[in-house]
Amino acid sequence: MKLTFKLFASLTDLLPKEARDHAIDIDVADNATALDLIDRFRIPRKSAHLVLVNGVYLDPDERGEANLRDGDTIAIWPPVAGG
């Protein structure tokens, strides 16, 4: 299936050079999990603090489950804060 994969803040450097606007389109197996993607892009798991699928929070307990769908956008941040 095809996904849009986004990395932000200090994780941006882990994206391939062809990425634009912090995003890259990728092909993955139909049963791929968020953790698979985190490992594929060599993101330290503790740095994958905020994981959103189509803008919706993905609980850490659900990141190893095959809950991604074709066309999804997955976006990941290290710990960030603001106000």
Binding site: A75, A81, G82
Partner: peptide, 10 residues
């Protein structure tokens, strides 16, 4: 690192 501006994309 990014200040509060880290939240813009979030």
């Amino acid at each position: 690192a990014l200040g509060t501006q880290a939240l813009m994309n979030v």
